[in-house]
Structures are given as structure tokens and as C-alpha cells.
């Protein structure tokens, strides 16, 4: 495809409490098939989407967190987490189930400014 745009998905919501995280991930997977330049950003409660060890049996809901691990297979490798969001939740990069790039707020803001399409759900 000749039109390659920079797509950024901004995830600011925790999983399970609402469906946004799951349905957002479904868009990400489709976008990969369009050969676009895809970045995923995790801010605020969105960081919780990546927490290791999610066990959803007790709430009878599909555990979709393993899908984040599959993103690499779709050539989606740009995952960014804001340091301040992680710190505020007592989490470190070791708590996350995928490799991410940790950015400061300022770096995150600059990255946003460079995008063509910013999708938030």
C-alpha cells in the first residue's frame, strides 16, 4: 500500500471493567494487516492492560492479555508505556507481560505530535 500513515492507539482504560481495552486490541490486529506504521501507547489505567498474571476464570470472562504477546507476530513492536503512569500504580517494566519502551511524559507527548492518526477508545 502506498499510503503508509502513522497510527497511534492510545490505551487509557483498565481491562475487564469495560470492554474498551479488548475491542481496541481487535482494531490493532486489523490495522497490522494494512501495513501501517502502528504504535501502541499505554497511559494512566491503560497500563493495567499489560499486567502479568491475569486470571479471569473467576469472572467468567475471556483473558485476552495473552494477545499482547502475539502482537510481535503481527509486526507490531512499538509498545510504549509512560513512566509516570506506571510509577503511580506501583508497577515496573518487570510487571508487564511484554517488552515495552518506557517513555517520560515529555517523550510521550512528542511521539503523539508526530502521528497522522490517533485512535483512542
Amino acid at each position: 500500500m502506498s499510503d503508509i500513515k502513522k497510527f497511534m492507539f492510545v490505551n487509557r482504560k483498565a481491562p475487564y471493567g469495560t470492554i474498551y481495552a479488548l475491542e481496541s486490541l481487535e482494531v490493532v490486529l486489523i490495522t497490522a494487516a494494512f501495513d501501517q506504521d502502528v504504535s501502541l501507547v499505554f497511559l494512566d489505567d491503560g497500563v493495567y492492560q499489560l499486567k502479568k498474571g491475569q486470571q479471569t476464570k473467576g469472572i467468567e470472562t475471556k483473558n485476552f492479555s495473552t494477545t499482547y504477546r502475539a502482537l510481535e507476530g503481527y509486526d507490531i513492536e512499538k509498545l510504549y508505556v509512560e513512566k509516570e503512569s506506571m510509577d503511580a500504580r506501583g508497577l515496573t517494566a518487570e510487571d508487564l507481560l511484554v517488552d515495552v519502551t518506557v517513555l517520560t511524559s515529555k517523550e510521550m507527548g512528542e511521539l503523539m505530535g508526530q502521528q497522522d492518526v490517533v485512535l483512542s477508545f
Binding site: A33, F34, Q36, V117
Partner: peptide
Amino acid sequence: SGLGQLVEMGVQSDRLVVFG
């Protein structure tokens, strides 16, 4: 239709605005 229509819209439009 499918989610591809959303991505296509992002590719083809000059500006995309999300309401939610």
C-alpha cells in the same frame, strides 16, 4: 462491515476525530 473500514478511513481521510 469489518474493522478494516475503520483503518481504511484512517488511511484515506485528512483528519480523523474520535467521539466517545
